[in-house]
Simulated assay, not measured.
Amino acid sequence: MTIEALIRGLRAELESGGLRGSFLVRDLHSGYEIGIDPDVQYPIASLIKVPLAAATLERIHRGDIDGSTTVAVQPGRITTPGPTGLSRFRHEAHVAIDDLLYLSTSISDGAAADALFDITSPAEVTRLMHQWDLHGITARHRIRDLTETPAERFEVTEVPLAHSLAITAGTTGRGHPLAQLDVTRANSGSARAFIDLLQALWTPSKIHHSIGARVRELMANNLLRHRLAPEFVSDASTWSSKTGTLLNLRHEVGVVEHADGRTFGIAALTESHVAAATQPEADTLMGWVARTLRDHLRHS
């Protein structure tokens, strides 16, 4: 099967499953890659926590901040489904910066991420990305802004209305009346930009090797493993990743390392056209498309 026929078939499967997606799979050692619309910009939700972790670790490495310093984190008092960790605490907590990195990255704790953003601003995260010659990911706001969508204001029975608004109100230029879904106002990035970041974290780059090692550890301990992980975890491989979810957006970026030494960066950024919060079929479809692309690249 030609690459063109493969991509055409995968696009049709995505459309049939109610998804539009941007995928990229790259062999991190050879540089060979295959993808579907890998340069399309998306609002990236919790994927921003990977650049945030790298930027925080850079500042620790430079001596600007001390990872053992404790930070007072106010309770999130969030009651809607989804948020984990400090976001659901009822009382103030005192947590070391290095432990906030674990909470933010490995269990996707929004309150922990915002405590880190208090230390390293979104603008500084973007600046450091550019310093590393990594472009295409822009940090603009804190994580708590993601909890201020119609989904949090509506009753549980009305959540599909929030998803309908997310699906239908966008513009052809990827603008949106909801700031969190507007690529010019939200934290944004593309599949290619995230693969570039993963390559810089997994192979020699301008990012110090100790920073890469720590981010790899945090992503290997990712607690949320329902999306792409089932397609890439085995006795002969390891899967390190970060997910991002907001309204109709479902993302995951990660690296699969095989026992034979082959290492692939994988990015899947998608938006659903189905007005439902729970869509396990979409997660399964994302994993299948990513696995199909990886298999083609691995065996070509």
Rank of each mutant, 00 (worst) to 15 (best):
A112N: 04
E155R: 15
R127F: 05
A139S: 07
G136N: 03
I143W: 07
G173Y: 04
L116I: 11
R174M: 11
I137Y: 14
V156I: 06
T149D: 00
M129S: 03
T120K: 06
T172M: 07
A139M: 07
I167W: 06
G175N: 05
T157S: 10
A113T: 13
F117K: 04
G170I: 11
I119E: 01
A112D: 05
D114K: 13
P122K: 08
R185S: 00
D133W: 13
A166E: 10
D145V: 10
L116R: 01
A123C: 10
S106F: 04
E152Q: 10
L146W: 12
L178P: 02
A151K: 13
T105Q: 02
V125C: 03
H130M: 09
A112C: 08
T105C: 02
R140Y: 01
S104C: 05
T171E: 00
H141S: 03
A112Y: 03
L134F: 12
L181D: 01
D182M: 03
G170L: 06
R142C: 03
V159S: 06
A112V: 11
S104N: 04
T184M: 01
I167P: 05
W132M: 10
R185G: 03
T184Y: 01
H141A: 05
R144W: 12
H176C: 00
L116T: 07
R127A: 07
S108Q: 07
L128D: 12
D114P: 13
F117Y: 12
H163M: 14
A179P: 12
A179Y: 05
A179L: 11
E148P: 06
D145H: 09
Q131K: 13
E152L: 09
R144E: 08
I137F: 13
S108P: 12
H135Y: 15
L134M: 13
M129F: 07
T147H: 12
E152S: 08
A186K: 02
S164I: 14
L181Y: 00
I119T: 08
D133G: 11
A111K: 01
R142V: 08
D114T: 12
W132F: 13
A139Q: 04
A139D: 06
T172R: 07
L116N: 02
T126P: 01
